[in-house]
Design a protein around this nucleic acid. Structure first.
Lengths: 179, 179, 179, 179
DNA sequence: GATGAATGAGTGTTCATTCAT
DNA sequence: CATGAATGAACACTCATTCAT
């Protein structure tokens, strides 16, 4: 059901992905779907949270708090791009979801918890005066959001994403946030 | 109809905004709506393009190409935040639209043309070795996208957006793109 | 308006031919159409009656009551095929109309009056014991209806209608009705 | 659903028979109808094909290829009138359908296959020089189409159809096609 | 567990028609 | 005469959801 949901949303869009179609894609009856999920909302939100957990796992792989902060962030940045290139469908799902009305139904705290390690690193960076002491929303707007913007360009438009491009982009992100 | 569309999309979301509901909000019959717009798609896309034109007009107000590039971008940056704070609903509409399947139906060239002056400035900045010579998608990911991320935080969450915050954020954006 | 109605009905069918589309085809406003016709029904029925009058005029061209009855009917038969091959659209309109619910709204007497001369000939043929003395519905079922069936085959299917075919068919019709 | 479709089409005509009305007549929800039929077209075409199969079954009842050709055709002819008098509504449905735009969507081959036995008899009649050697479209225009014309007169107008009338009409049809 | 059958409420869209201008 | 603007009612069709089996 998870896979069917993601696949369909990526093929025909969020709004057009009806319960019956998702059930059809999954090879089950719509009625069966309601055994596992309370309703459509539950299905979509659960799928979103699952992917986010998935992403968090991926970006923290080989996470080593003892490295210099710049290296940690750089690794997270690269892991993120790597994940998106391996799972463009999962990524696109989250992008669509995050801008839909369903977004309001997600427990933001739960999502943030997944990313706790890297957030803690940012906080340490501020304390150690390595990273600019600005509001967290502004910080993430410069080191996480550009990833999404760039990846979206790659998924939707004709933009080619090379290793060098990613390196350059990270350098810019680092320039933005470092003291 | 324009106002009704924006209002409803902001209140109940993109997917739930049916033609009848929009017509109801506008105080007209659904049939009447179809005199002015070819279909739902046309209504939504037209509304989007209209807002984008609107935004482009706002950010270019008092545009002065003779100023230093940093000052030009700073002005655009502030004008953008100003516009969003005056028209959070218009902004939110574009954010929702840009991540919906309708997004694919927009003539990207037309939209880009609206922002031609500022884009030309960026290009000049690269030529004059004031701005990093990187792909345009990457550049915009650092000087325009963070505005959206930050504004979204303001609209959706509890984030307060002060003059000083904006100034700080711009400094970061500039750090990211300047040579 | 007459031409537009016929043309559209032949292109998109009877049911799909809306008043607005007919007006559009005629290059006028739907409102204007209502100046000349009471309503849609009036438009369609009038068009039908007009064509029927047209057909009656055509089949009676060069009508000569003094000829032998077989020759008269043969001439009518050929004139009918000639008309249909010159105006397949008019013919098709009548066929569609005659099997639609609108058919009930036509003054059958008025239509029959158009064909009075040839009907009178049939009646004379019965009196002179040249034609079988059977109910008129049966008679027309054999000398007029086959024309429609054959013409329909030509219009809808791949059937080629040669001079010789028509001659043969008339011989069969005559065999059916003559004493 | 089958019965409801036929009944409604006969009562209010083909064009006015909407899916909701048919569903209403059948005592079910429009949505339910779509479980059994792909769409309106499917419903109408299926109903037509079903009736045609039905008719073919009826006219071939007691079909005996060893009888003289005239007797075979006479039996088919009478069986056809019998069917129509027992199911005037089914017959009327096919007449309306055959002149509607939906007609184009039917697999003509499938329908013809239902009537294969009697068609084979006609072919044999031609080979044995009992029936005129003319195009099949012309042949059927004289032995099958008049049935429809006569029956239509009975259904729509005031024409009374007696056993003697039918016998006379068949004699005429036979006169038309026999050598 | 799983599902076939069902549906009320809704979708986007077109209809025939009116009427002030 | 002609029409632009308007609409209530209907259209074909899909929705998320339920429930007896």
């Amino acid at each position: 059901m998870f896979e069917a949901t993601v696949k369909l949303v990526n093929e025909i869009g969020f709004a057009a992905s009806s319960v019956s179609k998702i059930a059809g894609e999954a090879g089950i009856s719509p009625a069966t779907l309601y055994i596992y999920y309370k309703n459509k909302e539950d299905l979509l939100v659960s799928t979103y949270v699952e992917i986010k957990r998935n992403i968090a796992g991926a970006v923290h792989e080989g996470f080593d708090e003892t490295l210099p902060i710049r290296d940690i962030l750089r690794r997270v940045w690269f892991r993120m791009f790597d994940y998106i290139s391996r799972h463009p469908d999962y990524f696109q799902y989250t992008e669509q979801f995050a801008h839909s009305p369903y977004q309001a139904l997600v427990d933001k705290g739960e999502i943030e918890a997944f990313f706790e390690p890297v957030i803690r690193v940012l906080r340490r960076g501020i304390e150690q005066k390595i990273i600019k002491n600005v509001d967290f929303h502004i910080l993430t707007a410069f080191i996480f959001h550009p990833i999404l913007a760039i990846s979206n360009a790659r998924v939707c438009l004709d933009f080619e994403l090379t290793e060098k491009n990613i390196e350059t982009a990270f350098a810019m992100a680092w320039d933005a946030v470092r003291l």
